[in-house]
């Protein structure tokens, strides 16, 4: 089975993330990048499917050259090869264009199954799986916390407020996963060494038949018009317990109408 995992490099959520005032895009240079957390689950699921059913796992990343670190991590976990789509013209692409660019790469790799995280931690639109499936004209099975492959059928389970849904589709398909699905493995020492020798394909926009004007900030359908920093969090109020700490807290909660 030809499995492609879409992996995004995002700024470390533990650090302070900023938008650039010049073009309202994320300042990716200022902070350490790492693999979008949900994408680790996507990679793990792909590896498990490969281990059970055979095939090959390809990592697909669109992002600046620093995203090579994230690709290497996915390869050290056990993926077989990668495609790194990197071109300054892609900078500032919105979801429509990102899904378009990824579609073009998938045309090059081919696929039976495309796996994505259900959402990134930076832009968090959570729409890429849906857009991609639409563009590719294949089924989308989203928010999976369990995936089963049975011949050319994919079955997933999705947690809902009232229980769970079971959804079935035929391959090829696009699936997005949530963190309940598995426990991602650590790369192994041998995996880290082997990753250095795994092929990373780096097609140009021309190779993919993408016109630079179709993508990037200029070609985007959406524009971030304005942004402002969140106001600093107000200082907390410390209650000193002088035997009446409990009632002071109760009074405070009552004043805020919590009790």
């Amino acid at each position: 089975m030809n499995i492609v995992v879409c992996v995004k490099q995002v700024p470390d959520t533990a650090t302070e993330r900023k938008l650039k005032s010049s073009d309202s895009t994320l300042d990716r240079e200022a902070v350490d990048g790492l693999m979008n957390e949900l994408d680790e689950y996507a990679v793990e699921e792909a590896l498990r499917i490969k281990e059970a059913h055979g095939g090959e796992v390809t990592i697909l990343t669109m992002g600046p050259s620093t995203a090579a670190d994230t690709i290497r991590k996915a390869l050290s976990m056990g993926a077989d090869k990668a495609v790194h789509l990197s071109d300054d013209a892609l900078h500032g692409s919105d979801s429509l264009q990102t899904s378009f660019a990824i579609q073009q790469v998938l045309g090059r790799t081919g696929f039976d199954l495309v796996i994505l995280g259900s959402e990134s931690t930076d832009a968090r639109t959570g729409v890429l799986a849906a857009m991609l499936a639409e563009r590719l004209g294949v089924s989308q099975v989203t928010l999976a916390n369990k995936v089963e492959i049975d011949g050319s059928t994919i079955r997933i389970q999705r947690q809902t407020d009232y229980g769970f849904d079971r959804v079935e589709a035929s391959l090829p398909a696009v699936v997005s996963v949530v963190e309940k699905i598995n426990e991602p493995r650590y790369p192994s020492f041998k995996g880290i060494m082997a990753a250095k020798k795994k092929p990373v394909d780096a097609p140009s926009l021309a190779d993919l038949g993408i016109d630079a004007a179709q993508v990037g900030l200029a070609g985007s359908a959406t524009t971030v018009v304005d942004f402002a920093e969140a106001p600093p969090r107000a200082k907390g109020q410390i209650v000193t317990d002088e035997g009446d700490g409990g009632s002071k807290i109760a009074d405070f909660l009552a004043s805020k109408k919590f009790v």
Partner: peptide, 20 residues
């Protein structure tokens, strides 16, 4: 088991016998 799967339990032995 976790250390083993990560390749940390056979480090000083040659790769030809399954070590690191």
């Amino acid at each position: 088991r976790l250390l083993g799967r990560s390749g940390l339990l056979g480090l000083p032995y040659p790769e030809s016998c399954g070590g690191g």
